[in-house]
Design a protein around this nucleic acid. Structure first.
Lengths: 224, 224, 224, 224
DNA sequence: CATGAATGAGGCTTCATTCAT
DNA sequence: GATGAATGAAGCCTCATTCAT
């Protein structure tokens, strides 16, 4: 079923739709792998070209530059996440249950039911956790925001906000809590791997369960 | 009084102590200004050298590379923040009041009583908000953590954790809440400037008050 | 006929085959000229780029660095020498006569019958004499040896060794004598130009004849 | 006894006599160690300064540049070798025996009877073998020769030549054979370590004996 | 459409050297 | 006499990008 679904990404982020050709899909697949491997800063079109045995010029047919490619990947992720959130909460009427499911989706990218051969969602998820913030911490954030590059991200927050409002219509800080949920979830995964002093979650087998428990606890407290 | 206080930064972050000489202080002062202006990615030693009418080689006498200089600035900030937190909570015995003051310090870097001629804390604060996360979102995070480059940051969290525990000794997630407080505070300032859909705080005159109010609300809810 | 012959060089020494393009051939031709003129130490890709009115980046498409380019030239020379040695001794059955011819080839690079427009063998020969030893006197000699960068050189020695063995099958030191012949021939040319106290050969018109005579004398004595 | 002997080096090679002070001796001792370790190309005054916990400026008080320092070390070696050759052949009247002893001295730097605390002759010997040729393979060879920087080296050859002439007064190529003996000896040690295909000598316990045997064999053949 | 070739610009770093104390 | 500070120049290399096929 998932195979009939395709993720649509802001078309200002690419020159030629990478999902539309073999080479484009190769670029997506391997840029995820390489950015995860090298970090965004050390990643270049040259390295990607060598990796996929193509050329820089060919990649430029698809993406204007590395920042756009990176934003494309982030957007793909956010779009995919939006789909996952929606798909998993259809017919769930209890908003508390809904929020619980949303937290699960956020935390556990493995519970996916959408398979796209040319995107490894697991690596992409890690990449979003590690490098994601760099997408909107840039000198060009305002300009990029105007071009709609963060709409998908904002949509994720909006869905969370919406659900919070369903739970507690008079809650005064839905948007801030929504973005906090996102950031806190990702941060704590990162911290548990690299800076354990900054989290109460331990890396290991049960991490996802623990994290879910903590996020539920926090959210419950906040929403009373 | 503050004038007699000096901030001590992890000595693995520099080759020659920049606080110890005129040129070093010039480097600190102007790197803050330039990174704020250009963003970390576009900032280079060459540009800094031109800006202060010196040479790249001279800067290399102080810092191994731009990453180390950046980490130095972050650490300087975290050390300074630690000092501010402590200094403003001396003799405050009520932990709730203490936490409130800590939030104020976090939010409002202007209430400083420590003046160092060669560091503009306001710009540095903005820089930390905008670029801070890049300091520890790097391929070398583990190695740098081993070298103690994040001790000052962790100390800030530890102080927050400590106060949380004083308020509620049996609270199960002090560390995660502490780091969340830090990140959420900074995020919301950034979002209010650039991505207003992601925050409930409006940029403008009253932002700091609003933010303080929100953070107190959230923390109160969480700590019951 | 020589025109149909092409010299093949170890392909680990280049990124893109310099013999395959105009620019590549220009790089070869002019690097020889410039290294001869400036010495290897003062030679840089920048100077070469300026000289051929191209850019460093373009040269880097062909060679990883100056050491590799230099080794390429040396290898080209050794390969060319191997070809010359073989070509001039075909159908020569008397090994003593063969060795005599080989000495002549070594000494007199002018008796060439192979013309490659983009390599000036005379200058290259001088370059090998002056700078050649630097090719294998390096910290990386073992590693480079493993990569086969000295195979062509060793082949020259092997051919000499082989002929020595044909002359005197029970001679105990063929390899050392072979390498000595090579080094002594080159040294004496260099010494006669620059350090005449270290050679019995006088620079001037008859140098090649004298040198040939001396080398034959020495070899005859050694091989009895 | 050796302690009362001092090696005198061409005074154009230094600004201040390095043998005359603690720091100077430290410079000598450690430059040998570092050049051996890093190779001449990677060796710099900066690295030497760091190594001896002094400064570049201090080293410049002794040597004009790295080339001069290197030539100083070579000259020290050649002077020392001259002393060794002479000292070990005093009262030896048989020229063939004398030449044999000279070969031994060349090969085996361990049979020294001169100890200078600030020079490790073993490392220096290795350094001469590995890097020595770079001393006179330079664009400035003629100019440096005029300044007498190779007198000591030429003196070694002259002593060998002299002995050859004593053995065989009418030998026509004494100088070339003398320099060949020097170069061949050093080459074969180097080759046995790094390019075994180019030598008949095997690295290992008996190398020095084998090498001595070979050099005697070659010399005997040449001198008939 | 994809690619091979080329390159201008600039980043990062070290070198060699001088000056002032 | 030794050192600390500073720096101009250059080396080495990569990036991002364009053009022609």
């Amino acid at each position: 079923m998932g195979h009939f679904l395709s993720i649509t990404v802001n078309d200002k982020l690419y020159i030629k739709d990478p999902q539309s050709s073999d080479l484009g899909q190769k670029i997506l697949k391997n840029s995820i792998i390489l950015i995860d491997e090298l970090g965004l800063d050390n990643f270049t079109f040259k390295k990607l070209a060598d990796h996929i045995e193509s050329t820089e010029a060919s990649i430029y047919r698809y993406f204007e530059n590395k920042q756009k490619l990176f934003l494309y990947l982030l957007n793909w992720y956010w779009e995919w996440l939006n789909f996952m959130l929606e798909n998993n909460t259809i017919n769930v009427s209890d908003p508390r249950k809904k929020l619980r499911i949303m937290l699960m989706v956020l935390i556990d990218s493995a519970k996916r039911n959408l398979d796209v051969e040319y995107i490894d969602e697991d690596i992409l998820h890690r990449l979003v956790i590690v490098e994601g913030a760099k997408g909107y911490h840039t000198k060009f954030v305002d300009q990029q925001n105007n071009e709609g590059f963060f709409l998908a991200y904002k949509q994720v927050c909006a869905s969370l906000s919406q659900t919070i409002m369903e739970i507690k219509p008079d809650f005064p800080y839905t948007r801030s809590v929504a973005s906090m949920i996102l950031e806190m979830t990702f941060s704590n995964i990162y911290f548990s791997d690299h800076l354990p002093k900054l989290t109460s979650i331990e890396s290991g087998e049960d991490r996802q369960d623990e994290l879910l428990k903590m996020m539920e606890f926090i959210v419950d407290k906040i929403l009373g």
